[in-house]
Write a protein that binds this DNA or RNA. Structure first.
Lengths: 295, 295
DNA sequence: AGATTCATTTGACTAAAGTCAAAGATTATG
DNA sequence: CATAATCTTTGACTTTAGTCAAATGAATCT
């Protein structure tokens, strides 16, 4: 990939500085008006029952520190702490009614603050700001996602495939039978490869490459978690698969896709794939595509 | 102005949360790797010699706290502290060579961090991100600027007019004579009004309204500080002047502008002003405009 | 000239944030 | 089934951040 230009870095940092100084600081200040910021943040992160473990990793806190803060909140009647039903080492934290009220108040304040800020803009300006922010956020998210090769039998790989199966089972009118999924050995070693996309440590997408015949590969199970859609992640996964295919000296990549996945079809066309006659009799294949790899 | 929709507030807050958590936190963490954040920030704010007073107001710090931090940095050889030549109550702080080296290192790290983040995007995506960020920043800045009526003789008003005069003196081929500026009494009380735009407490623009004849007002000296241009601030000032004119039951607003100020001409046309024949013999007037106020 | 204001320094605090390690209770694993 | 790993709690800290008030020396106002 091309090196990052200093112009981009400078603009990024300029925005970064401006935003954290102007908005971040303000937000923190109003958020933690009646209690320490740490506690306020904690309260905010406890939705409908989280484990301390989850909070600890999510907020990157020291176990002892967190334990004490949770205890303080409990003493104030803001949260209820209970033992996790399945694993009694874990503690579950959930908001009490009082906690929920305080959180609502916190949100109300933050909303008022945001509204006060936006108040100085006209309607169209607000639209443009909203548009710019959502674009920036989408791109920042995409930038933070890494696509890594993992073993086809790895838990993350299987978790993705399970989610993929459940997802399309709900979308295909005829449902989806998991036996159609690639087997781990089909996407390991010489036979193929499996890629998982990670956002902040969590798998949010996948894609498989499988050897069909000499110099011909097949792409399967390109999937993106619903939370990570519309970021351009499928293309990133596809690019990773193509790079891998090129490294394996494959000349042609083929794939099929289901009639109900119109976005997928559009994407493959946009990525240089052309429609071809069926190359194999897949149960769920309605459209077949191929791309010749150059170089 | 129309009320702020919840959609805008929600998107604003979503971005806010995402950004501060993902980028802000990261930045702080890497910035203050070897020293407390407060000190790191201080080091960053000391450019080529600032007074403690300036730092104190800019960063909103307690005088004692700042004094001690500066002393720590001095003891570490990062800064030099000297007495202000003109006013020996003030202390000037400037970076030593070692301080500059550390600051460079800080910047290098932050740049590398930004570059690493942008690395996951393609060229066009980086362009779009940069574009979105600069749009967002422009609009956020604009949202934070307030336009307030001040007395025509107030120091802020005169400071703006002086800056305005210096600005156009440099732009007009024939220069500009300050005697053409409105006198304080022309824009006070019944005679007229003067508005100053403030960004974070600093005056960044102005505009004057002057009574020409019954029911007719004149707009003069609409000016925006070079640092605050391209935000749409002139329109905001103009809107404030028009609102004031409407409140005074003026039916017509007139103004003139110089040939060399092409952007101004475009703006007036876009804001509903139409060109008219000269209504008065101003020294620097090349184009004359008028707008009828409705309602 | 005397009073007032201003910028800074110093001493004496407090609260928040965070670290580290030991220990106890469970659960996973070879 | 013994051992290792995991999650949490507790005690004993440290550092950072920040506040408040009195004191000092200098500038400004009347």
């Amino acid at each position: 990939m091309d090196p990052v230009s200093t112009v981009h870095v400078a603009e990024f940092r300029r925005f970064n500085r401006y935003f954290t100084r102007r908005i971040g600081a303000l937000d923190d200040h109003y958020l933690g008006q009646d209690r320490p910021l740490g506690e306020a943040r904690l309260l905010f992160e406890i939705g409908e029952g989280v484990s301390l473990r989850e909070l600890r990793t999510r907020l990157g806190l020291d176990a002892g520190y967190l334990s004490r803060m949770a205890k303080t909140l409990q003493a104030q009647g803001m949260v209820r702490i209970s033992v996790h039903p399945g694993d009694s080492r874990l503690r579950m934290v959930e908001l009490t009614r009082a906690g929920r009220i305080e959180l609502d108040e916190q949100n109300r304040r933050a909303d008022a603050l945001a509204a006060g800020l936006l108040d100085g803009l006209t309607g169209p300006q607000r639209d443009r700001l909203t548009e710019a922010m959502s674009t920036a956020q989408r791109l920042l998210r995409l930038a933070g996602i890494t696509v890594a090769r993992v073993d086809g039998a790895a838990p993350d790989a299987r978790a993705c495939l399970d989610a993929y199966a459940a997802d399309i089972d709900a979308r295909f009118p005829e449902g989806f039978d998991k036996s159609d999924l690639v087997r781990p050995e089909e996407v390991s070693g010489n036979a193929g490869a499996f890629f998982v996309a990670y956002e902040e440590g969590r798998p949010v997408g996948c894609g498989a490459l499988r050897r069909l015949e000499p110099r011909v590969g097949e792409i399967r199970h390109v999937w993106v978690h619903p939370d990570a859609r519309r970021l351009g992640l499928a293309r990133r996964i596809l690019a990773a698969l193509e790079t891998e295919a090129a490294a394996r000296r494959l000349a042609v990549l083929r794939l099929d896709t289901h009639a109900s996945l119109t976005e997928a079809r559009t994407m493959y066309l946009a990525c240089g794939y052309t429609e071809i006659p069926p190359y194999v009799d897949h149960v769920y294949g309605d459209y077949w595509f191929e791309k010749r790899l150059t170089g």
